[in-house]
Nucleic acid binder design. Structure first.
Length: 576
DNA sequence: GCCGTTTTCGGCCCGACTGTTTTCAGTCG
């Protein structure tokens, strides 16, 4: 279901992992990793490119280009197949456990025959790792904890993957004769950060063509159920898709029902009962007469319940029904409200695309301002220097004006050091239009130290935005343990915006933290943290998350017109 | 395996932290 680029990227990454595990040339593994990343982030669909054109992608040379071209024709890559035959896939999956890399994975496989995450947990609990060289008690503890982190996402997939699959399914089903309406519902429509399974809804008079079509879609691995009202399949990447076909007259009621959340549905059903009505996926009915009084659209159903239409992202039973009744439903921020991006990278540090390509792509997206914020020197591996930063500033200034209607800002993403300081002194920092500051190291300091560190970063007058404030990575790294209320208070006091990082692996701050921060009076920046042209599309996930946090345009600084934004940036860091 | 060139092979983001070990390997960003 994935796009060809992602498909190929996953395959190359898998090969890189297998090379690493089998102790192959580390530089070869690195080369495959770089090619995977380059292809994953490449803007054109690689299935439209031949071997020659593939070689124009940076870090893709003759060997990989030929392999990819052959794969796109034949559907297999022999080298990967051979590597798979030597090392079970479960061994590779062990590497998904934080703190467990290729060397430990191979040791576990070779000495104990462990080739799955559950088997590893069992082995640790049976104390079978005790005699293994290089595995002490702390390592066991870290692995067990890592498994917990990994499994906390419980088989749920991230928003971007779910959205991509859903879009493909909806496109396929919409093309079928007799399709009156088709969309996704469920937690994807509510934009939860992870999605357990996809709910697809079709309005049509006959269901069979849609049910059949679903089972025949590419990347469908198995059919779990096949009926007239509901069909369920599982994709090759393990995502379950439930399709329901409803009569067009029930569309609105069904959409509400299958969008959820369950708690929201219970809340509005209770309201129906109090009005002597009954709400189901088929419609809103008079309890006594059984007469249908609304069902065709969501608006109709909500209206007959005495409510305005409630955006799906608010339907979590967090007080949205009460707010709606008071007429105080927030007018939440939308994709169209986003005027700029204040956190992006280029290939000067770890981005994939050049400054020019990123800027052109931002202009195509209709942004009114765009900040380039490459990494600062303390993140040593990025090899940033004062000279490079200044040269980039000249390049940014020179490019400004290339796209009428889009203003370029030169910024940086600073590293918040263990004490809360950042890379450059005040004088140098003053030269940037916008400074994002983020934690990139020392994630496991004490709660007090982390809190002080983030508060101090907020108090730095040159820091405008705290990037990915909790540093969590879904399924990989837990949020840092800081007193977030203290951080939120400091951010509000100093006018430092907190980022809503839109990358689907981060979504940081998350909805619940946004709600808390907003109560402190914090302002937010919804940024993509784009490392490639394609990443610029991630804004919608950040916007969805912001909606779930009840944010309006007044809360989000990059929905503001440029003059207001610049005034705000000028005043940041001073206590008001 | 890629890149760049000093065109035919040498260098490849580099440093810090952790845990295990007793001088360093593995993992991470």
């Amino acid at each position: 279901m994935a796009r060809p680029n992602d498909d190929v990227a996953a395959l190359l990454q898998e090969y890189a992992d297998l090379v690493q595990i089998s102790g192959g040339d580390a530089f070869k593994a690195r080369a495959y990793e770089k090619a995977a990343r380059a292809i994953g982030g490449h803007h054109t669909d690689v299935s439209t490119l031949d071997a020659r054109a593939l070689r124009d992608i940076p870090n893709v040379g003759r060997s990989i280009a030929d392999k990819v071209a052959a794969y796109l024709t034949t559907g297999t890559m022999p080298e990967v197949e051979q590597a798979r035959a030597r090392i079970p896939d479960g061994v590779r999956r062990l590497m998904a456990i934080p703190t467990l890399g290729p060397k430990k994975a191979l040791t576990l496989y070779e000495t104990l025959g462990i080739s799955s995450v559950p088997a590893l947990r069992e082995a640790i609990e049976a104390e079978r790792l005790r005699d293994l060289k290089g595995f002490g008690p702390k390592t066991e503890e870290n692995i067990l904890h890592g498994i917990d982190v990994l499994q906390a996402s419980g088989g749920r997939v991230r928003l971007a993957q779910a959205a991509e699959t859903a879009e493909a399914v909806v496109a396929a089903l919409t093309a079928i004769d007799g399709c009156e309406r088709c969309t996704w519902a469920g937690s994807l429509r509510r934009m939860r950060e992870t999605v357990g399974d996809l709910d697809i809804l079709v309005a049509a008079r006959r269901s069979a063509p849609f049910m059949d079509a679903l089972t025949r879609l590419p990347h469908v691995a198995e059919t779990l159920a096949h009926g007239t009202k509901k069909t369920s399949v599982r994709t090759t990447d393990g995502l379950q898709i439930d399709l329901r076909v409803v009569p067009p007259g029930s569309w609105g009621a069904a959409l509400i029902y299958f969008t959820g959340s369950k708690a929201h549905n219970i809340r509005i059903r209770e309201r129906a009962v109090r009005h002597k009505l009954k709400l189901s996926e088929y419609g809103l009915f008079h309890t006594e007469t059984g007469r249908k009084i609304a069902a065709r659209t969501e608006e109709d159903v909500y209206r007959r319940l005495g409510l305005p239409w409630i955006p799906p992202t608010l339907r979590e039973d967090r007080g949205e029904v009460a707010a709606a009744l008071r007429g105080e439903l927030p007018v939440t921020v939308t994709d169209a409200d986003i005027r700029g991006d204040l956190h992006t990278h280029t290939d000067l540090t770890d981005g994939l695309a050049s400054l020019e390509d990123m800027v052109d792509a931002a202009a195509r997206r209709g942004l009114e301002y765009y900040a380039v914020t490459d990494h600062a020197p303390d993140l040593v591996m990025q090899r940033m220097t004062d000279e490079k930063a200044l040269a980039q500033r000249d390049a940014v200034r020179a490019l400004d004006g290339r796209h009428r209607g889009m203003r370029l800002l030169h910024g940086t993403e600073l590293n918040i050091d263990p004490d809360g300081g950042v890379d450059w002194d005040a004088e140098f920092l003053a030269g940037f239009d916008v400074c994002v500051a983020s934690v990139h190291s020392h994630f496991r300091q004490s709660r007090d130290a982390l809190t002080r560190r983030l508060v101090r970063a907020c108090e730095n007058p040159h820091v405008h935005i705290i990037g990915h404030p909790t540093t969590r990575i879904l399924g990989k790294r837990e949020p840092v343990d800081a007193d977030l209320d203290a951080v939120f208070a400091a951010a509000a006091r100093t006018g430092t915006a907190l980022e809503i990082n839109s990358h689907p692996n981060r979504l940081d701050l998350n909805d619940e933290n946004i709600l808390r921060a907003k109560r402190h009076g914090v302002k937010f920046a919804i940024d993509t943290d784009a490392h490639s042209v394609r990443d610029l599309e991630y804004h919608r996930f950040g916007v969805g998350t912001a909606q779930r946090g009840w944010l309006t345009t007044d809360d989000v600084i990059n929905t503001w017109p440029l003059p207001r934004l610049l005034r705000h940036l000028d005043g940041t860091g001073t206590t008001r």
